[in-house]
Amino acid sequence: MAFIDARMQLPETTPSALQVVRVAPSLRQRWNAEAQLSKACYPQDVVLCFGNLPPLRECSGKVFVYLQNRYLSAHRSLKGLPLKAQVRIHLERLWLRRYLRDATVIVQTETMANEVRQNLRRSCEVLPFAPNGMRARDDRSPSFDFIYVASGEPHKNHRKLIEAWGMLAQKGIRPSLCLTLDESNDALLLDWIRARQAGEGLRIHNQKSDAAHMPALYAQSRALIFPSLFESFGLPLIEARASGLPILASELDYVRDVIEPDASFDPSSALSISRAVMRYLGRFEVPQCPPVATEFWQKLRGIA
């Protein structure tokens, strides 16, 4: 039996024998669904809660909570998120801590496990997985130099990435960049990006990012760039590696939990990101050699 969000599309490979219960996205409907689960559950059953939150009602089966949201596992800043999202996350943080009970927490990386141990004071199991069906990229006609697969939340760090693209443009370097932002949910961010794109001549494209289109987008890209500030897993890193793409990514623990990047950078620095892109493109800057004291004085006098 599977209780599924009513908005979620099931793949064609879903077993026909699986009993699917559609649940509307509301607390009342969830409460009713959990009542149904509680009645149907036996002590030998396994209950996998795949959406970060444990059941509100107690059930007799063995409960596993798959925790993938790092906004819930630690009290990190919600600045920049819409007010509705901030309220929801605050409530979900309370929900997670109050109703976790004796459930087993499952995470996908050791970094996430350490965060659970430190902040939730719980042991957990590290059980990562990647989707089936990923394929190697097609080198015949790549359309984009780089792709960044991410939604528009502040921690995804799009603004710093676009600032880096602006720095590259100032040097006459204009690689193409494919983004996967939602035209509705990320409208304000897209407006800002398009204003900079028009003003600085940046080659930025935004593409539809549903699961059916992702293999083709990876196949049309030369490399993945991933400047996110934190992830519970970073699935695009796995997908890009399976697709054969080189990866430029943040020099952060969550990245090296799952892949060894081809190049890394400080995600808080647009300059660091731009320099990593330049190195990848084979464009190297010669570090400035500081003058000795006598030369410094001569240059200073020349300026005066």
Rank of each mutant, 00 (worst) to 15 (best):
A2T: 05
A2K: 11
A2M: 02
F3S: 08
I4K: 09
I4N: 07
M8C: 06
L10Y: 10
P11T: 03
A17H: 14
Q19H: 08
V20C: 05
V21H: 10
R22L: 08
S26I: 00
L27W: 11
L27C: 05
N32D: 15
E34W: 01
Q44Y: 11
V47H: 09
L48A: 13
L53F: 07
L53D: 15
G61V: 02
V63Q: 03
N69A: 10
S73P: 02
G80I: 10
L81F: 06
P82V: 03
L83K: 12
K84A: 15
K84Y: 07
A85N: 03
A85T: 14
Q86N: 03
V87F: 02
I89M: 15
E92S: 06
E92D: 15
L94W: 09
Y99L: 12
R101C: 01
D102F: 01
D102P: 04
I106G: 05
I106Q: 01
I106N: 04
E110I: 08
M112L: 12
N114W: 08
Q118L: 11
R121M: 12
S123G: 14
E125A: 04
N132R: 12
G133V: 08
R135A: 13
R135C: 14
D138F: 02
A150K: 03
S151P: 06
P154W: 05
H155S: 04
N157D: 06
K160M: 14
K160F: 00
K160C: 14
L161R: 00
E163N: 03
C178D: 08
L181D: 05
E183Y: 09
D186K: 09
A195M: 06
R196T: 12
Q197L: 07
E200M: 12
G201Y: 02
H213F: 12
M214K: 11
A216E: 09
Y218S: 05
Y218H: 06
S221L: 04
A223R: 00
F230W: 12
E231A: 02
S232L: 06
G234I: 00
L237W: 00
E239L: 11
R241F: 05
A242V: 11
G244S: 09
I247C: 03
Y254A: 01
R256T: 08
I259S: 01
P261K: 06
D262L: 00
A263L: 02
F265P: 01
F265K: 00
S269P: 00
S274P: 08
V277M: 05
M278E: 11
Y280R: 01
P291Y: 04
P291N: 08
Q298R: 13
K299S: 11
L300Q: 07
L300I: 10
R301L: 13
G302C: 13
I303L: 15
